[in-house]
């Protein structure tokens, strides 16, 4: 295991932020810490980096107990949401910082920095200053800077949180590819389930300072441990006292076994998918169908249809 967190507790004042958190991160993996804001995920990441000290519990990095080690000695790469670029240093000097601290020879530094700048596609901007870069470029610089010291683990705290949607999507894909190239054990914090599912190979869901579930994206999406995780990882709707994914609901004009009659209140066409809002016995639900399906069934407001969870689909019974 690259990172082993055991029974970590941390409070800020009287507010507990992490409660008995234990976590294993496999070497070479790309793990997402996913959860709502205030769930403790950033604090956990900072505990791993040594930027926060846990009240109790231990952190081992590559088998070494790092609980009492300062961040300086942990050899982790940390990327901040707001880049934490060294504003008075050029892009080159930013990336070179860790190597200069380690007193590496000048030509070795030069070679390594240029390699990294090529990796993050900033080789042409080496002499610029951070203030002359866009947000996405700054974050790539921060990533190169963190990678320069060949960290045992790379930690990213909401790395794309401050970027606009377009750049965010680009950088996501790019981070995944980068990880496939560099293979450094990576943990990143996000509150965006889509980002976690798309990029990570393991997702750890944190809420209220506790680990709620950990597993592969498919596992967490398909077998959520509780209604909270199910709601957090994707759209849900409530049919017959169960939580179901709206795309796992069958809709038909004729009565079906196990189906409930529903009245369509609205049909919203969102490109290739169609969102059908229905009312079942006084409460609202919605079903996601394809355009082709909607056209074939001729769905329109006021129609009565029959809905049921698709056979074999995962659903969670809600406690009444």
């Amino acid at each position: 295991m690259a990172i082993e967190v055991r029974d970590v507790n941390k409070s800020f004042g009287t507010t507990p932020v992490l409660r008995d958190v234990s976590l294993d991160v496999a070497a070479g993996s790309l793990t997402a810490l996913l959860g709502p804001s205030g769930g403790g995920k950033s604090t956990l990441l900072r505990v791993i980096a040594g930027l926060e000290r846990p009240d109790t519990g231990t952190v081992r990095i590559s088998g070494v107990d790092a609980t009492r080690l300062s961040p300086q000695r942990r050899n982790v790469g940390f990327v901040f949401q707001h880049y934490a670029a060294f504003k008075h240093l050029s892009v080159f000097r930013n990336v070179a910082f860790g190597l200069e601290i380690r007193k590496r020879p000048k030509d070795e530094i030069r070679k390594r920095v240029m390699e990294l700048l090529e990796l993050v596609h900033l080789e042409k901007l080496a002499d610029r200053y951070p203030s002359q870069l866009s947000g996405g470029q700054r974050q790539r610089m921060a990533l190169a800077r963190a990678l320069a010291v060949e960290p045992q683990v790379l930690l990213l705290d909401e790395p794309f949180g401050a970027l606009d949607a377009q750049v965010r999507k680009e950088l996501r894909t790019w981070l995944r590819r980068l990880h496939d190239e560099v293979h450094v054990t990576t943990v990143f914090v996000t509150h965006d389930q889509e980002e976690a599912i798309e990029v990570a190979d393991t997702i750890v869901v944190l809420a209220g300072g506790e680990v709620v579930q950990a597993g592969s994206p498919g596992e967490v999406y398909d077998n959520p441990a509780n209604p909270f995780v199910m709601r957090f990882l994707g759209p849900v709707t409530e049919i017959g006292g169960s939580l179901v994914r709206p795309h796992d609901v069958e809709i038909s004009p004729d009565p079906v076994e196990g189906g409930a009659p529903a009245v369509i209140s609205r049909v919203v066409r969102l490109g290739f998918e169609v969102r059908v809002e229905v009312e079942i016995g006084g409460h609202e639900a919605w079903v996601q169908v394809t355009r082709e399906q909607a056209d074939r069934l001729g769905l329109g407001p006021g129609d009565t249809v029959h809905v049921r969870p698709a056979p074999g689909a995962r659903s969670l019974a809600l406690a009444v």
Binding site: F78, F80, H82, F97, G98, I101, A142, A148
Partner: peptide
């Protein structure tokens, strides 16, 4: 203090961080 924290994670001691990051800032 994020720049200072970044410098710490990159291996800089308190003094190195002060001289290289805080003071120029």
């Amino acid at each position: 203090d994020e720049q200072e924290q970044a410098a710490h994670t990159l291996g800089a001691s308190r003094l190195q961080t002060f001289v290289r990051i805080t003071l120029p800032g």
